[in-house]
Design a protein around this nucleic acid. Structure first.
Length: 307
DNA sequence: AAGCGTATCAACCGCCGGAAT
DNA sequence: TATTCCGGCGGTTGATACGCT
């Protein structure tokens, strides 16, 4: 009974994805749109199982993904949503369209859990309550009083500055070349641009600025044939656009875009609820907050509307 | 500089629910 | 209705980067 694991097949490759595989996958999805993952390995020749393809796409290659460290507002949202929903990372991610559930899950496990534990520890004035690991907390009122408590976050450099050590230097350079050559013309089309416009519709806060925040440490491509991760991703996506979109620009600008967007359907939040209204309000507040400069020491107090 | 411990995150594993047959 | 298939989700792991001694 039950079906065998899809990855049990002989010849299925595991482990980190190579740039070549990324290009193949992106090209294929740009042409056919996400979905029907079962057929992806077959049609692309990728020696990966369908799950692996889907995961790679949704967690890494999908356009509109914001990388780098989380903003205090995002942290607040995650904490609050976790309290409300429990470890429903996909649900939580739907409120943070630029973040993947995997990212949120990782961030929770590596940062927030500890942070809350700290705050929860005896003697601490800031008592942020946590429920059991897998269930929503009963107390959903958090007062993460001082924004300073977030300042010990690892700096951007930790994740986004890590270089994507390409296993195929040639591909990296090829991609770099593609990107440079097309940056002027493709800057207004293709995945990245698409995602930008796509995600600003529901509370996607300050993507442009956030990108700026995450990019400075990513200096220009170094001289060792290693490209920064973000630039690498841009390259992959641009490459995919060029591969599939060049010959039929209008097609890629419409049909494919739509298909790709379908892949983000899960990102489309349900109709506005009380929670969502609050989140959007918070988002707006966040914009003002960020505009006001980094306002160190400012109070970030989460509302207690759910208590 | 080397060794060691810790943090981070991409990717895998296994289960579940819904769709298809 | 029962069975199989597929996509999705959450938990976990392993490789690597990072920081400290």
């Amino acid at each position: 009974m039950g079906r065998p694991p899809c990855c049990d097949k002989i010849g299925i490759k595991k482990g980190p994805w190579t740039p070549e595989e990324d290009i193949i996958l992106v090209s294929y999805i740009q042409e056919h749109g996400p979905g029907n993952w079962r057929s992806v390995p077959t049609n692309t020749g990728l020696l990966r199982c369908s799950k692996s393809c889907r995961l790679r796409w949704t967690n890494y290659l999908r356009p509109g993904i914001k990388r780098g460290n989380f903003t205090p507002h995002e942290e607040g949202m995650i904490i609050h949503l976790q309290a409300l929903l429990g470890n429903k990372w996909a649900a939580i991610a739907s409120y943070l369209p630029q973040r993947t559930d995997n990212d949120i899950k990782n961030y929770w496990n590596t940062h927030l859990k500890k942070k809350l534990k700290k705050l929860q520890s005896p003697g601490s004035e800031n008592t942020a309550q946590m429920g059991s690991e897998n269930s929503p907390t009963s107390a959903t009122s958090y007062h993460l009083v001082s924004k300073n408590s977030f300042t010990d976050r690892p700096q951007i450099a930790t994740s986004s500055s890590s270089l994507y050590a390409s296993s195929a230097e040639n591909i990296s350079r090829l991609l770099e070349g593609w990107m440079r050559a097309s940056s002027s013309s493709s800057s207004s089309k293709g995945f990245t641009t698409n995602s930008h416009t796509n995600n600003t519709s529901h509370g996607g806060d300050l993507e442009e600025e956030d990108e700026d925040l995450t990019r400075p440490e990513v200096a220009a491509t170094d001289n060792n044939g290693v490209i920064p991760k973000e630039e690498y991703l841009d390259s992959i996506l641009t490459f995919g656009s060029l591969m599939n979109g060049m010959e039929s620009e209008s097609c890629s600008g419409n049909n494919n875009k739509q298909k790709v967007n379908e892949g983000n359907d899960s990102d489309n939040p349900p109709p506005l609820s009380f929670l969502e209204k609050w989140l959007l309000d918070e988002s707006a507040a966040q914009v003002e907050e960020e505009e006001g400069e980094d306002n160190q020491g400012a109070v970030m107090e989460l509302p207690t509307i759910f208590s």
